[in-house]
C-alpha cells in the first residue's frame, strides 16, 4: 500500500481520522516521521497534516506562556519575548532543521534527541492533548511516562508553562561534535533563590533515560542549601539517582553517568566551573 497525505483544518476531524486509520500519523516538521518513512517504516501509511492556526501561535497572558505544537524552533528564536529560551531552541539541529522542527514533535523524539523537551520539563510545562475522549491537560512528566502507549487519535496541540523569573532558567547540552551533535547529556534547570539559598528547583536531564526525566532526588536535596561548590560536592550522590542512560554511538551509559555531575556543576556554578 502506498503513502498518502491528508490535510485537516480541525483538530477534531484529524482525531477521528487517526482513530479509524491504523497507519495514519500526525506530521509536524517531518524530522522524525518522514525520516522513519524514508528508512522504510511501512507501518506509516498516511501523513496527517493539521492546519489549525492555533497550533502555530505563541501566546502569553498573565505570565503564562502557551506554545502551539506546530511552533517551530526558528519561530521561537525569532520571538523577542522568548530570547531566554533561545539556548534550548538553538541547539536543535542546524537552521534547516529549525525551520521545520516543532515544539510538539520534539516531545516525541527518542533519546538522545528531544533536548527542547528537557527545557520544557524543567519549566514545569503542561501538555494539552486532543483525543477521542476530548481535551485534556497532562503534566509533561506524565506525557513522557505514557508516550510509548498513547491512545490512538491523540494529538498534542500545545504546551504551556509559567514564565520563570528573569535569570532563573539555565540550559546546557554536551555533545561530541561542535558546533552541533546529539546529546551526551542535556540539562535544564530553573532555580529560585530565597535569602541566598535555593528556594525552589526544577532540574531535568536529557539522554539520561528513555525520555527526559526530572532530577527529583537532587532537587529535594538542594532545597534550603547554598549554591556553592561544597554543597554540590556533598550532594553529588543524588545527581545520578534514578537515571538509566542509554549506551549508544554517542556515549556509554557509564560515561553519561560519570560526566553528568560535571556538566551539572558547570551549569549551576558557571562563575566557578564554567
Amino acid at each position: 500500500m502506498g503513502l498518502s497525505y491528508r490535510r485537516f483544518e480541525k483538530v477534531s476531524a484529524a482525531t477521528s481520522f487517526l482513530t479509524e486509520e491504523a497507519g495514519a500519523c500526525v506530521v509536524g516538521g517531518g524530522t522524525l516521521l518522514v525520516r522513519r518513512v524514508n528508512e522504510g517504516d511501512a507501518a506509516v501509511t498516511t501523513y496527517v497534516r493539521v492546519c489549525d492556526p492555533e497550533m502555530k501561535r505563541i501566546d502569553e497572558a498573565d505570565g503564562r506562556i502557551r506554545l502551539g505544537a506546530l511552533v517551530t524552533m526558528a519561530q521561537l528564536l525569532g520571538h523577542p519575548g522568548l530570547q531566554w529560551l533561545a539556548p534550548a531552541a538553538r541547539i536543535v539541529g542546524g537552521p534547516a532543521i529549525r525551520s521545520a522542527a516543532t515544539v510538539g514533535g520534539n516531545l516525541f523524539a527518542a533519546s538522545p534527541y528531544g533536548d527542547f523537551g528537557v527545557a520544557l520539563l524543567a519549566l514545569g510545562a503542561v501538555v494539552t492533548v486532543h483525543g477521542a475522549v476530548g481535551v485534556e491537560e497532562w503534566p509533561l512528566a506524565e506525557f513522557f511516562a505514557r508516550r510509548d502507549s498513547l491512545p490512538a487519535g491523540l494529538i498534542v496541540t500545545s504546551v504551556a508553562f509559567t514564565r520563570p523569573e528573569a535569570g532563573t532558567f539555565r540550559f546546557v547540552k554536551a555533545s561530541r561534535v561542535k558546533p552541533k551533535g546529539a546529546a551526551i547529556v542535556s540539562i535544564a534547570a530553573v532555580i529560585a533563590r530565597d535569602a541566598g539559598r535555593v528556594g525552589a528547583a526544577r532540574i531535568a536531564f536529557g539522554a539520561m533515560a528513555g525520555t527526559p526525566i526530572r532530577a527529583s532526588s537532587f532537587e529535594r536535596a538542594l532545597i534550603g542549601e547554598q549554591l556553592i561548590t561544597a554543597t554540590l560536592d556533598r550532594l553529588e550522590p543524588h545527581v545520578t539517582e534514578g537515571t538509566t542512560p542509554p549506551s549508544d554511538a554517542i556515549a556509554s551509559a557509564w560515561y553519561r553517568q560519570a560526566v553528568l555531575p560535571v556538566h551539572l556543576r558547570r551549569l549551576l556554578l558557571p562563575e566557578i566551573d564554567g
Binding site: Y5, V34, R49, P95, S99, A100
Partner: peptide, 9 residues
C-alpha cells in the same frame, strides 16, 4: 527559509 527537501513533504 532553509529546508531539507528530503524530509519536507
Amino acid at each position: 527559509a532553509p529546508r531539507l527537501s528530503c524530509i519536507t513533504l
